[in-house]
Nucleic acid binder design. Sequence first.
DNA 1: TTCAACAAATTGAACATTCATTCAATCCAC
DNA 2: GTGGATTGAATGAATGTTCAATTTGTTGAA
Lengths: 199, 199
Amino acid sequence: MARPGIESIRRQQLIDATLSVIETHGFQGATIGKIAAASELSVGIVSHYFGGKQGLLEATMRYLLSCLQQDASRLMASRPSNPRESLMAIVDANFSGVQTHAQSAKTWLAFWTQAMHSPELMRLQRVNERRLLSNLIFHLRQLMPPGPAQATAQTVAAMIDGFWLRAAMSEGRIEPDQAVALCKTYIDQAIQANNGASK
Amino acid sequence: MARPGIESIRRQQLIDATLSVIETHGFQGATIGKIAAASELSVGIVSHYFGGKQGLLEATMRYLLSCLQQDASRLMASRPSNPRESLMAIVDANFSGVQTHAQSAKTWLAFWTQAMHSPELMRLQRVNERRLLSNLIFHLRQLMPPGPAQATAQTVAAMIDGFWLRAAMSEGRIEPDQAVALCKTYIDQAIQANNGASK
DNA sequence: TTCAACAAATTGAACATTCATTCAATCCAC
DNA sequence: GTGGATTGAATGAATGTTCAATTTGTTGAA
């Protein structure tokens, strides 16, 4: 008979193995064989649970996105409702937890590349991007006029992506602290530059 | 006998075809067969002139880097020696010419991904990154103390990468003008925030 | 000028490898 | 014993590389 929860266990096993293999061998080198070996399962199991390689890759990206969203929710909940502090929490969330590890950074870059030619991955990517931008604008809007708020939000989003990219490229260690500090410095500069402009 | 210059013509033909195919089919879909078809040459010619697919890809990235450097040199030469204007020229260079087209943006992203597992491509990438950072710091150093100059340079570099990433992701058109404007706004904010701090 | 020899340039079919998928056989908990 | 869970060898498709054959342009002697 079916053991309870065996399906979710196997799915997570395969997703973890996929992340590990992509980090080690890159997106191109992530073959079913290597993923199966890393998960200590067989190659056939992938088709059984995910319908094929593409399904596994999409599930893996969904997992990464959900981790990001959880980090964000957790950090937003534990902060005061001060707009500036909320912005800082958003920055922290985008560099905390899974995102700061080289494994995730490389995998994100791989998925970004892949997403450009996969409608479903692209859709997931856009949803995530929209959410980040909306959150930033919502809080910035309480500190500056609409125009600068929009511009600042897009700049912060670009900075976050840029630092992720550098994190993925730098082979050894990443400096998430430095990236976070630079983002926060920019936000304060933007607030200062636009302070009292209209309000 | 050998016709003079035929080799450089063929090499450029293949590099152009590679860029075109990557833009259309993605990095994974860029097969020798498609590249050969796009260049209206045969598959064997690739090994003849580049030793293999990997050699062609490295040559293509070298070509993109040289285009970038040419754009930078051209824009730097036609500007006054004012430090602020020089910084603006660097920003312009990084969004001008080849870089602003969707073709190049997608290809850059593909190469970034590929570079993470190719020592030679990684080396090329690092050299380019170092040059950008050095240039930024050199000019910023004349407008603010060393610490902020370093921080601002890294932030600008991250912003540039981030906007490139968005350019690659955004399907239809890119707004290089907007990206340039946001980068310049940030630079002015940074100058203002650190003005007279030490100097 | 013409033509034949020559060599570089180019071709593309054949080959070898890699990889995702399939599915009949096996395993294992109940 | 039963049925879901799992296996992994077989299969076929895709792709990079090779290299013998062919084409193309040049040279120099007649």
